[in-house]
């Protein structure tokens, strides 16, 4: 199987502080990769590089063997038609209703309003929010915003979906629902997904490939079984969610 996404030696620093220090990854078509790691280790930054919201300081990113890290914004607009992104903060447009938020990507593609209405209603129903279409984001709870954000991201049936902590702030039932949706998108449409998450249970249920990012580098990569059976103390500490172990959560980071 040829790699759909390839990342080589990705480095990124902000105001002199190194966040990513040479990340190497590759993901095949139709696979779901879950990126685990502590807060502030560069998971979201990694994801934003993959959709052209950030440019790497050094390193290369390839989609279908085509280098994309040096594309300009106009070229990225074209490339992003096959991708979507679920933002950590939901990032719904405050000035638009829920319906208009979900309809936004469809309108950008110039789809007819009649068709848009059907798709939007179906997507909102899918995330368990069929009656909120007229509300504005300010009247939704955090979890509802997240679900609308997922509906908006999946509305165009993208080839690649990047999820930035899609289950954070959701109750366990809705977390399971979102995880199920990620698996369903893969089964129905062969969607390739990269999920950044802290939720180990959800990660283990959706992942084909698990990656542990530590201090801006890939520390471990493997299948769910390999992770579950891993003897590595750092992997075990993360999966078991213990504060004692090689990862000191209170350490001063460089």
């Amino acid at each position: 199987m040829s790699a759909l996404i390839q990342i080589k030696g990705l480095c990124k620093a902000f105001f002199g502080k190194e966040i990513l220090r040479g990340v190497d990854l590759q993901l095949n078509k139709g696979e779901t990769m879950v990126v685990l790691g502590e807060s502030g280790t560069g998971k979201s930054v990694l994801l934003k590089h993959l959709i052209g919201l950030m440019k790497p300081d050094t390193g290369e990113i390839y989609f279908k063997n085509e280098r994309v890290d040096s594309l300009n914004e106009k070229q990225w607009l074209e490339k992003r038609k096959m991708m979507s992104f679920v933002f950590q903060s939901a990032a719904l447009f405050d000035s638009l209703s829920v319906f208009d938020n979900v309809a936004f990507p469809l309108r950008q593609q110039g789809m007819l309003e009649e068709k848009i209405a059907n798709i939007v209603r179906e997507r909102l129903h899918h995330v368990g929010l069929p009656h909120v279409d007229k509300l504005f984001p300010s009247s939704l709870s955090g979890g509802m915003k997240k679900r609308v954000s997922v509906a908006r991201a999946l509305v165009l049936n993208p080839e690649i979906v990047l999820y930035d902590e899609p289950t954070t702030g959701l109750d366990p039932i809705m977390t399971a629902q979102i995880s199920e949706m990620i698996i369903q998108m893969k089964k129905d449409y062969g969607v390739t997904s990269i999920v950044v998450s802290h939720d180990v249970k959800s990660a283990l249920s959706v992942a084909d490939v698990l990656v542990l990012l530590y201090e801006g580098k890939v520390y471990a990569k493997g299948t769910v079984e390999e992770f579950k059976n891993s003897k590595d103390s750092m992997v075990r500490q993360f999966l078991e969610g213990r504060s004692e172990g090689p990862i000191d959560p209170l350490r001063v980071r460089s």
Binding site: L53, W76, R80, S84, Q88, A91, L92, D94, F104
Partner: peptide, 11 residues
């Protein structure tokens, strides 16, 4: 609040 990034992502 990442709404500007969302605009870019959705074309």
């Amino acid at each position: 609040t990442e709404q500007v990034d969302a605009l870019r992502v959705f074309g």
